[in-house]
Write a protein that binds this DNA or RNA. Structure first.
Length: 840
DNA sequence: CGTTCCCGCCACCCG
DNA sequence: CGGGTGGCGGGAACG
């Protein structure tokens, strides 16, 4: 009916007619699987499995082999889908491929198998859809599904009708960075939080504040109406191909990925994803069918992402039961891009992709009229209108550009060697012989990683920020629930908006800039503040879901986790002696709860200082020639905060549970209890600092060690520690711990095991110290400046410790007059995790 | 039964 | 206007 865009009615009619006329052909229905085949049939799932097993065989692509290696031998099942049938097509027709044989995931694998991950320019990297479709024996329609999501990751790009160019993973890291950034700017983190919150709204029903918050969030939400995110140099190849750039699958795929990138346990449930993706357009019609459709699409996308091994399916268990979700298993994405193009290296800047740089006129055409209204809301229909207009405009714009020399651009050296190396990193890691899950997760690796990072960062001192360090477990053989506990490797990245830094970078020719198509009206909305700068004590998913948890539940959870964990059984036992007592004494949860609740009340979202920080339209030209609205707020914002504001916003405990800045949802004590405690059990080292905070700690302590400086906090390190401990509930609020421990604890944070804690600690500490010595530190921790331009780090240390976002993002701690500690800008992360995440 | 998701109609848009 | 694209949702397969 009217609801349907497509005159489905007709379809339905014709359908029924057809059905009647030709009963044997089922026009609109899924063909029934011809009942039965011999049990021994080669195509049964079982046989499939066998095939797989025997399959680690020769003819699999080298790439495939690598993957296999990385897979735990015991998990053949898991790898099942990873294989392509190895036999010639001879057996095709005789058997009815089971539904699974036709799955998009498998198809995608086949598709991927055709092309190298990192194609060289020399190779023939053209993709002809018809050809592929034929070879893979599927309808073209299916190929579109695959290609579309690949395109969203810039792994392919469309050249012309029926033709695509294969880029493989060369662009992947940049794309992910861009996506992450955009995701942050879209405040996806908060949206997720919000969704979850809403799920069980029933419980907290407080005042209008909530509503306001919701409204605001969703209202401003339309900003996320952004379209396809592009990379410079990856812009439309051919003008003609542009039209549907903002269409669903592609964009949806990008958004989906964004959700992972901004989530701390990088797990996203389908439900949430769907809601967010829908919510962007119109929040009201939470139409069920629409939701269903969205989910369906998400499955499609997820399937190909899975094939790419960027995500994998898991289940999160909430109070409602198991819900399908996906976990990011791709490379860790560092918000800061700068590192990618090491000016350090003799390589210098990669030659600017001159060919692909749009003319100036185009740039001007791209100018978005900025609309100042902050909360301008428009009716959906209007949005649509605008969209189409915008669309047209785009077409026009792109027209002059017309197809560029493919060969030139296709493999344009956008990605310097360094980048490639980086990209390759995960693979290397993956190649490390698979041990046991635990071991993988284990410290040895982490320790190495740490070292590596440390030394690396030392080397990269010229970088204005840490370079991209990829997470070690990308290929996920061991991906278990535990991973959730280690959202980010030490020092790797700030979960936060890289917007800060990246935004600043664009100046650099080779910088990873990205292009977002926004509706003019939305330009202003882009990032007002960084979502990540909020404390996220809990994993959104379960957090939201939990009302009151009793110890039983907690135990249960822990136990469940335990099996895959090193520390098992009674979690308490696995704790270090040191921690143990603390934890116990901790009736903490209760205390925390109360307090948090109390605090929440006071501090709920006072919307903050709007955009005074929007110093100016903050628009700038990127090399790509596209005009991109900067996330000015990000840095401006930070700088903009006055101390009192910070204080107000971030006062101790309160901040932990709800930050006005972030619009975090306040949580109840029970929730905290439920979530935080389990986290402890799971992670021997309970204190898990986010990269941001981690970065902060060293700097701070350092500053206090060396020459003190700007830090207003007498003893920042201890502040951090105390804050953390208190927050986590390890120590009563009143207790204070000396600063030193910080150094020890921080490193430990990355250690899942305690057995070697001491050693590791030692090592890490040494490393750190060493590092410090090296660069003599300049710990400027509370410099609220928002440099407009990329700033070169003064010292290696600084560059290392500074959050990727830039100097201004360095978390600062300060003691408030009231004696409480204040954390500003920084984020202390508590291990966040689902109540339970299970692989399938 | 709930979840997963293949199939293919048909609206759209491009050349 | 024909053909490439790809939104969309029924309902089968799967678990």
């Amino acid at each position: 009916r009217s609801v349907l865009k497509t005159p489905l009615k007709q379809a339905a009619t014709s359908h029924s007619v057809l059905t009647e006329i030709q009963p044997d052909c089922q026009p609109l229905t899924t063909p029934t699987k011809p009942t039965e085949i011999l049990p021994v049939d080669p195509w049964t799932p079982t046989s499939n499995l066998k095939m797989l097993i025997s399959a680690a065989s020769p003819e699999i692509r080298s790439r495939e082999q690598r993957r296999e290696l990385s897979n735990n031998p015991g998990e053949v099942l898991q790898a099942k889908h990873c294989l392509q049938e190895h036999l010639s097509g001879d057996e095709y027709e005789k058997s009815q491929p089971s539904r699974k044989e036709k799955s998009l995931g498998l198809l995608c694998h086949k598709f991927l198998a055709r092309y190298p991950d990192y194609p060289s320019t020399a190779e023939n990297n053209f993709i002809c859809l018809d050809e592929v479709a034929e070879e893979l024996n599927v309808e073209r329609r299916r190929i579109y599904d695959i290609v579309n999501v690949l395109e969203s990751l810039h792994m392919v790009s469309r050249l012309a009708k029926n033709r695509y160019a294969w880029h493989g993973r060369h662009n992947l890291s940049k794309t992910l960075q861009a996506l992450k950034k955009v995701g942050e700017e879209n405040k996806y983190t908060q949206q997720i939080q919000m969704i979850k919150k809403r799920e069980h709204e029933h419980e907290f029903d407080f005042d209008g504040e909530k509503n306001e918050e919701v409204a605001r969030s969703f209202g401003s939400n339309e900003h996320s109406e952004m379209s396809f995110v592009e990379l410079p140099g990856m812009e439309f190849r051919a003008a003609s191909v542009n039209s549907r750039k903002d269409k669903s699958l592609r964009v949806m795929s990008q958004k989906f990925v964004m959700l992972f990138l901004v989530s701390t346990p990088q797990i996203v449930s389908l439900e949430v994803a769907a809601k967010i993706l829908i919510g962007e357009d119109q929040l009201e019609d939470l139409d069920k069918s629409k939701f269903k459709t969205k989910i369906r699409r998400l499955y499609d996308i997820a399937n190909v992402l899975s094939s790419l091994e960027l995500i994998k399916k898991v289940h999160v268990t909430e109070e409602r039961g198991r819900k399908p979700a996906f976990k990011w298993t791709g490379p860790e994405v560092l918000p800061n891009i700068q590192g990618t193009k090491l000016e350090t290296t003799s390589m210098t800047h990669p030659p600017p992709p001159s060919e692909s740089i749009p003319s100036k006129e185009q740039c001007s055409k791209n100018l978005f009229p900025l609309k100042g209204k902050q909360n301008f809301t428009r009716h959906p229909s209007l949005i649509k209108l605008v969209k189409s207009i915008e669309n047209d405009r785009r077409k026009i714009q792109s027209a002059p550009t017309s197809p560029i020399k493919i060969s030139a651009i296709l493999f344009s050296p956008l990605i310097p060697g360094t980048d490639q190396n980086l990209s390759a990193f995960p693979n290397e890691m993956a190649q490390v012989p698979a041990i046991t899950k635990h071991q993988l997760e284990g410290q040895s690796k982490k320790a190495k990683e740490m070292k590596m990072k440390l030394s690396r960062s030392a080397l990269d001192c010229n970088l204005s920020s840490p370079e991209v360090v990829l997470k070690p477990e990308p290929l996920c053989p061991a991906a278990g629930p535990q991973q959730a506990a280690f959202p980010q490797p030490l020092g790797v990245c700030s979960p936060s908006h890289g917007s800060v830094s990246p935004v600043i970078l664009p100046q650099t020719p080779s910088g990873v800039s990205y292009t977002i198509y926004l509706h003019p009206s939305q330009a202003h909305t882009v990032t007002t503040y960084s979502p990540s700068f909020m404390l996220q004590p809990l994993p959104r998913a379960n957090v939201t879901g939990i009302k009151s948890i009793n110890s039983k539940v907690v135990n249960k959870v822990t136990t469940e986790e335990g099996d895959s964990q090193i520390a098992t059984g009674d979690p308490t036992k696995s704790l270090t002696t040191k921690e143990q007592p603390a934890l116990k004494s901790e009736a903490s949860s209760q205390r925390c709860l109360k307090r948090s609740q109390a605090l929440q009340e006071n501090h709920l979202p006072k919307r903050y200082r709007s955009d005074k920080e929007s110093l100016d339209p903050s628009l700038s030209f990127f090399p790509s020639g596209y005009l991109i609205p900067l996330a000015q707020c990000t840095h401006g914002n930070k700088a903009g905060f006055s101390n009192e504001e910070k204080a107000g916003i971030c006062s101790l405990q309160h901040t932990a549970y709800s930050s006005p800045v972030a619009g975090v949802i306040p949580m109840t004590g029970s929730e905290l209890k439920a979530v935080n405690i389990p986290a402890f059990h799971i992670t021997p080292l309970n204190i898990m600092l986010s990269p941001t905070s981690i970065a902060a700690a060293p700097v701070l302590s350092n500053s206090s060690l060396n020459s003190s400086n700007t830090s207003s906090a007498p003893n920042p390190s201890s502040s951090v520690l105390n804050f953390t401990l208190q927050h986590v509930g390890l120590i009563p609020t009143g207790v204070q711990v000396p600063a030193n421990p910080v150094l020890q604890h921080v490193p430990m944070a990355s250690q899942p095991e305690n057995s070697e804690n001491m050693n590791l600690q030692e090592k890490v500490r040494k490393n750190i110290l060493q590092l410090l010595d090296h660069g003599g530190l300049t710990g400027e921790c509370s410099a609220p400046c928002a440099p407009k331009e990329p700033r070169m780090p003064q010292t290696p240390t600084e560059s290392f410790f500074r959050t990727p976002g830039g100097p201004n993002t360095v978390p600062s701690l300060s003691a408030n007059s009231d004696g409480t500690n204040t954390v500003s800008q920084g984020t202390l992360y508590i291990p966040q995790r689902k109540l339970e995440v299970s692989e399938d």
